[in-house]
Design a binder for these strands. Structure first.
Lengths: 136, 136
DNA sequence: TTAGTTGCAAAGGCTTTGCACGCGC
DNA sequence: GCGCGTGCAAAGCCTTTGCAACTAA
């Protein structure tokens, strides 16, 4: 739990039952659901909620910077609510499991000035690939 | 030029005019085309080539490990023929420009053993985000 | 009240598939 | 000649959009 709902309320995000359910489904650690999975879980609590509404809510959460969009496999995007704790992903090539990892140090430091080619670098995404204990 | 065709021939890849054109279009440095862009360029040389054939060829090149699939924006996948020279990507958030970068050091070293959670880590993808000189 | 949100259904972008024909080896 | 590759068209998956009805603030 990371009080996603609380933060949204503080920021004045218009709250509806649909949006509350989406935020609740998404809240937590090591959560990396696809839009469809979010919808499936939301439907359990609010049977009439539509996919379009889920997509709307997810899009806004991403714009607000409260949720991160991650694409680990070229298929559906996944949504990661852990936007306020910089982290990286460890992805199992076998089963698709995604694990958050928090190595020390600033990953941006890995790119020296002479390799920046005039870019103003503002962020970096790191995805480690491998096999998890079960798949190995 | 990195002799993609030569490598494919050596590996016994069945060669057809379509597959040759796809490989030719893809060969080079700083190439990050979408499947559709590959198709468009292929059509210039071989007007009848179909999208399905381009997708087939791209899929095989990826399986062979001769081409890398990169998804920098959640939209269409891009294909990077530079699979034999480890590198990372610098992506402009403004115009989408992708630049290959080659920082020194082994990026895998960034993940200490205690952060591997039983995974056998085999690779890592690093994408730096920022604005290029023109967009800044 | 009223601007913003929802649900539906349809459209859209990207990719894959099924099958008959054709071509590299 | 055999078996894989090709082209076409249709289907598939994921996501977005248009619009009338609805609702939080």
């Amino acid at each position: 739990m990371s009080d996603l709902l609380e933060r949204l309320r503080v920021r004045g995000w218009r709250m509806t039952s649909q949006r509350r359910v989406v935020a609740e489904v998404l809240d937590g650690d090591h959560v990396h659901l696809t839009a469809d999975e979010v919808h499936a879980r939301a439907v359990e609590r609010l049977p009439e909620i539509s996919r379009a509404t889920v997509y709307n809510a997810l899009g806004e959460l991403v714009s607000l910077g409260e949720v991160l969009e991650v694409t680990t496999d070229g298929r559906a995007k996944r949504y990661d609510p852990n936007a306020h704790h910089p982290h990286q992903h460890l992805v199992c090539s076998g089963c698709g499991l995604i694990r958050d990892v928090h190595p020390g140090g600033d990953p941006l430091a890995g790119l020296p000035a002479e390799e920046r080619f005039g870019f103003t670098v503002s962020g970096v995404e790191v995805t480690y690939r491998g096999l998890c204990a079960s798949c190995a």
